[in-house]
Amino acid sequence: MNDTLIHLEEIVAHEREHECEGLGPRRLCVRPVSVAVLPTRFGDFHIMAFWNNRDGKEHVAILHGDVVGRENVPIRMHSECLTGDALGSLRCDCRDQLEAALRKVGTLECGAVLYLRQEGRGIGLINKVRAYALQDRGLDTVEANRALGFRDDERDYAVAAHMISTLGMKSVQVMTNNPDKMKQLQDLGVHVSGRIPHVMPPNVHNRFYLETKAARSGHYIDFSGRAHLPEQAEPVVIEGMPEP
């Protein structure tokens, strides 16, 4: 057993009876329940699974290296996207973003991808399909997407902030193109020491970002004519694009 795993298991043991007032307006509290080695095609990780006091969603932290007690830990918050992450949908960029995050973290000394099970909590997936149905009718309106809750959920930050605290990270560098995410974490008591732009390599599926200008209501239109909503709540940046 490696030292990192021993460290992480100590956290699980130490937090076994953890209970606190919780973070954010919903007073969300998470507790690590189990940790294991997770070799992936993107690098070697540990996976830590969390229980929470609000719903049945099981959030996970995917950890590389020893993050415990460290400063300036690079972290990426990723919101679950069944259609993109698992099914390879080309209506969004979630899979590219997740892969880029795992690859990047896998090359660093240490880092974490906090995988937040937003979708499927309550009505996420159903409403995503509704949003796609509206898009199919040419009704990609800002207000409708907002009512559908399209990646606009502050509760995820409470989950992430609590995970960061549980893991004893002294400060974090947030991998994001949306500076607002840093502020959200800071408001929940996380020490944010910096930001790392989240840049993805170009591929056959995201090439349109380099070739087309952001058109309708700030969305990019892909090769099949569909608008790409910013499902991870931040602008997409491909290598070769200027930062937003």
């Binding site: 509704r130 149905a133 509206l134 009718r137 009704l139 990609d140 309106t141 800002v142 207000e143 409708a144 009512a147 559908l148």
Partner: peptide, 12 residues
């Protein structure tokens, strides 16, 4: 367009 979007959403 915004009203149309809202109307379709209400129907759904």
């Amino acid at each position: 367009l915004e009203l149309e979007g809202a109307r379709h959403l209400l129907r759904m």
